[in-house]
Design a protein around this nucleic acid. Structure first.
Length: 530
RNA sequence: GGAGCGUUGGUCAAGGGGUUAAGACACCUCCCUUUCACGGAGGAAUCACGGGUUCGAUUCCCGUACGCUCUACCA
């Protein structure tokens, strides 16, 4: 049955028709509902991930809904960014604004009529009321009363349809006085919530306040919007951050009044991701201070033009990124730490999600990337790494050699960007050679050795690793020089520095011509310094 | 201030009445590699505190402390 919208639905309401759709309890539908007010932080991506894992595992659907009812904080481009982030992570929604399903629209601003309708229904049935208090009046109350809450104990002293005479309310409407609709929280009730992670939770209704449901601009607040949308979109399970726990009783009340508790989705409140050091929730600021990314991908604030570097641009593989994120608050109880997305789908369980918040550890995040790099075939990511080389002005021509080089150095790379540093000398002559490291121990004998090495190497019929090494060793023996004395000079001549993979491997990949030229070049520099 | 949630090494964590309290990251030592990494072996390091219940509590209960989240016409 299609969901009626707008005037059509209002008509139903006026005529007293039920606003109910039967709940399809047999279908697992999980939604991720970010607000487009900026980039997606780690916590947001993890929430999306857990939503997705659960949905996929249960053979259900994963729905992306955009919560854009706060127009004052709406950031253009943020919605696309969210879509792009999920795509990079390999988390594909079954329904989203760009891929609408049967329960659209998928942006809250496009569902405005729904909220108005349900808010009015609540008022009509005595579960909510109109409030005319101005922001100034509220501010005043907060100053006068230390722990002011708009709730059972104070609402009688406020200007609302509960306290004002009927004719005054009518007049206020006639005068177009701005108003909001607030939830009328009942007195003395215990509100229960069964959380999938935390178990049974209890809240006293007297502690809750009369939350604004519909703002004066006619837009719903989050509280009304989630409940109405989750109902209308037939959502069965809700995973969201722990920060929502205190307002959960409001949502339970709304479910009770609007759609019935028996139709309420199951809740799971996820633990928070904490700063690596110090106290508190991980924030953009904290990340910037500690020097690690917090967004999955680069995010440029359209207003301030401020760029925040993402994990992707920092050189992370999406597989490593989601693996790291999934393990921040969950594990499968074994020693396994490396999981692919399909493995996560297969093994994820909410029962094993931790209750306590987890501190983010950038070192461990890098370790995940290192592990993934080791198990990834370089041919699959070579194009991406090639771009990194080109960004540094290094051109790569031979694709086969490139992949060989990448395979050779990948064990010593933790981030994609490390490849440039670890392998640039294969494609570009070193700008500097650490001649100082060998100059002091340079001798005429060594010099002669290398002159002869050039001659022998140039006569080599094949330029293969074993030949290169054997020739070198035999010659060293013939010259009565310890091979250890010779290896470092050769390395520096070829790569410029002291570290890297086996030097004969390097020579083999560099090719005969380039190897000999580099030795020649350095030999002449060395002779000048003597 | 109030409410809610939480607390196993520095960090992520397994374990849910009897364990030498797993494992990983980071750190330290050694081995391997005539380099640097990778890899291997080992080391140091933990049940927040106080009361119960129990023959026995890291595990169950109650307090306390500490931390976090919320306390907007933001989500």
């Amino acid at each position: 049955m299609p969901v009626k919208l707008g005037k059509e639905r209002l008509h139903d309401l006026i005529n007293g028709n039920q606003l109910f759709l039967p709940r399809m309890n047999d279908k697992i539908r999980v939604r991720f509902a970010p607000s487009p007010t900026g980039g997606l932080h780690l916590g947001g991506v993890r929430t999306a991930l857990y939503n997705y894992l659960f949905a996929r595992q249960q053979g259900g659907q994963f729905i992306l809904r955009i919560e854009d009812t706060d127009q004052t904080r709406y950031v253009p481009g943020a919605e696309q960014y969210i879509l792009d982030t999920l795509a990079w992570c390999g988390i594909e929604p079954d329904e989203s604004p760009e891929k609408p399903g049967a329960y659209g629209p998928y942006r809250q601003t496009e569902r405005k009529e729904n909220y108005l309708l349900y808010a009015e229904k609540l008022v009509k049935e005595g579960y909510a009321y109109y409030a005319f208090d101005t922001p100034e009046e509220l501010e005043q109350k907060r100053k006068e009363i230390p722990d002011f809450q708009y709730n059972i104990s104070h609402r009688a002293a406020m200007r609302n349809s509960l306290t004002m005479p009927a004719d005054e309310v009518t007049k206020a409407f006639a005068d177009h006085t701005p108003y909001v609709i607030r939830l009328k929280v009942p007195e003395g009730e215990t509100i229960e919530l069964d959380d999938m992670i935390r178990g049974k939770l209890q809240f006293q209704s007297n502690q809750a306040d009369d939350k604004v449901l519909l703002k004066k601009d006619g837009m719903p607040t989050y509280h009304l919007a989630v409940v109405v949308d989750d109902y209308l979109m037939q959502i069965s399970h809700v995973f969201r951050g722990e920060e929502w726990l205190p307002s959960a009783p409001v949502h339970v009340l709304l479910w009770k009044y609007l759609f019935g508790l028996e139709n309420m989705p199951q809740w799971a409140h996820l633990p928070l991701i904490l700063k690596p050091e110090g106290n508190g929730k991980l924030s953009k600021r904290a990340a910037a201070q500690s020097g690690f990314p917090i967004f999955a991908m680069n995010w440029t604030d359209p207003q301030t033009k401020e760029l925040t570097q993402g994990f992707r641009e920092r050189g992370f593989l999406p597989e490593a990124f989601i693996n790291m994120l999934a393990l921040l608050g969950w594990n499968n109880g074994t020693e396994q730490e490396i999981f692919s997305l399909p493995e996560l789908v297969a093994q994820f369980s909410i029962a094993r999600v931790h209750k306590a918040g987890a501190r983010f550890d950038y070192e461990k995040a890098k370790w995940f990337n290192h592990e993934w790099l080791k198990k990834t075939a370089m041919s699959t990511i070579a194009p991406e790494i090639k771009n990194l080389f080109e960004a540094k002005g290094i051109t790569v021509e031979d694709k086969a050699t490139f992949i060989e080089v990448l395979e050779l150095v990948k064990d010593r790379c933790t981030l994609l960007t490390d490849f440039v540093e670890q392998a640039h000398y294969f494609f570009q002559r070193p700008l500097q050679y650490d001649i100082a490291a060998i100059a002091s121990k340079w001798t005429i004998e060594k010099n002669n050795f290398f002159i002869e090495l050039i001659r022998s190497y140039s006569l080599l019929p094949y330029w293969e690793l074993p030949d290169l090494e054997n020739t070198f060793r035999e010659m060293a023996a013939a010259h009565a020089i310890k091979i250890g004395e010779l290896l470092l000079p050769l390395r520096i001549m070829l790569v410029g520095g002291k570290s890297g993979p086996g030097v004969f491997h390097i020579a083999a990949l560099l090719g005969k011509e380039e190897t000999l030229e580099r030795i020649n070049l350095n030999l002449s520099t060395l002779s000048k310094t003597q």
